[in-house]
Simulated scan of single mutants.
Amino acid sequence: MDEIVRAAPPRPAARAAAGGSRATPAARAAPPPRRAPEPPPEDDGPDPWDRSARAGEESNAVADPEELIRDAKELFALLTGGDKVAFWGAALVLLSCFLPWKDTAADGDILGLMSMGVGAFVLSILVMTAVSLRVKGSLQNVNPVVPWMGQLLCAFICLVWCVIYIKTASDSTKVPSGFGNAEVVNSSPSLGVYLALLGSLAALGGTLLGLKGKSAR
């Protein structure tokens, strides 16, 4: 019986098992299946938190300090005669507004910018701007008389403004001092307003001098 069983042909299941065992190495060597390509990420636009572009725009918007210094040197080189007197007179008024314009018994020193002196501050800037635009020739399409008249009017108003301020700041009423039993005046003009008065006189005189030189040509 044992010899007959050994001589019998193998069963189909055994053949399949034998074939499967032989096919296993080939199946292991087969390449893995390829994955489908992933779709590209959607572009949602620039990052709202990215400030690199904004920083570049802000850096372009800010003027170069060297260029400002160069423009100032060119302007100072173009100033001659009455224009130089008017420009630096207005600059003196501008600086005087950072000094005390009035001394009061109650509040002490009051700066020009903290009082009516701010009007002289604005007028002095207008005078300096008019001189700069006219000297550089930036108003070619405007009648030359217009900047001259604007400069003259601003300088004159600035002078009148300073005179009125001196009048209103002078109050000789005696009031008790905060220290001891002495009496002091209620308010009096300080150094700043007198410097502004001097500067406005120079601005007005320089403007008239420039007009006289222009009419003589």
Score class of each variant (00 low, 15 high):
1 M>K: 11
4 I>F: 00
5 V>Y: 04
6 R>L: 08
6 R>C: 00
6 R>K: 10
6 R>P: 01
10 P>T: 14
11 R>M: 07
11 R>Y: 07
15 R>K: 10
15 R>F: 12
18 A>Q: 13
20 G>D: 15
21 S>H: 06
25 P>G: 09
29 A>V: 02
31 P>V: 08
32 P>L: 11
32 P>M: 08
33 P>Y: 02
34 R>G: 07
35 R>M: 12
38 E>W: 03
38 E>I: 04
38 E>P: 06
42 E>G: 03
46 P>I: 12
46 P>V: 13
48 P>I: 09
52 S>K: 12
53 A>N: 10
54 R>Y: 13
56 G>R: 15
57 E>G: 06
59 S>M: 12
60 N>R: 14
61 A>N: 07
61 A>M: 06
66 E>C: 01
69 I>P: 00
70 R>G: 11
71 D>P: 01
73 K>P: 00
74 E>M: 10
75 L>Y: 04
78 L>I: 07
79 L>M: 08
80 T>V: 12
82 G>C: 02
85 V>D: 06
85 V>Q: 07
88 W>L: 13
90 A>R: 00
91 A>W: 05
93 V>W: 01
94 L>R: 01
95 L>Q: 05
106 A>V: 10
107 D>R: 15
107 D>H: 13
109 D>V: 05
109 D>E: 15
112 G>H: 07
112 G>K: 01
114 M>C: 11
114 M>H: 14
118 V>D: 08
119 G>Q: 06
124 S>Y: 03
125 I>E: 01
126 L>W: 06
127 V>Y: 02
127 V>W: 00
127 V>P: 03
128 M>Q: 05
128 M>W: 05
129 T>Y: 09
131 V>Q: 04
137 G>F: 01
138 S>D: 12
138 S>Y: 14
140 Q>E: 11
141 N>R: 15
146 V>Q: 02
148 W>H: 12
149 M>V: 14
152 L>M: 10
154 C>D: 04
156 F>Y: 08
157 I>L: 15
158 C>M: 15
159 L>T: 05
163 V>G: 01
166 I>M: 13
167 K>D: 11
169 A>G: 06
170 S>M: 11
170 S>V: 00
174 K>T: 03
175 V>P: 01
176 P>M: 05
181 N>G: 03
181 N>W: 05
182 A>E: 15
189 P>Q: 08
196 A>Y: 02
197 L>N: 03
197 L>M: 14
198 L>M: 12
198 L>N: 05
200 S>N: 05
201 L>Q: 09
202 A>F: 12
204 L>T: 09
206 G>V: 03
206 G>E: 03
214 K>I: 00
214 K>Q: 09
215 S>P: 00
215 S>H: 12
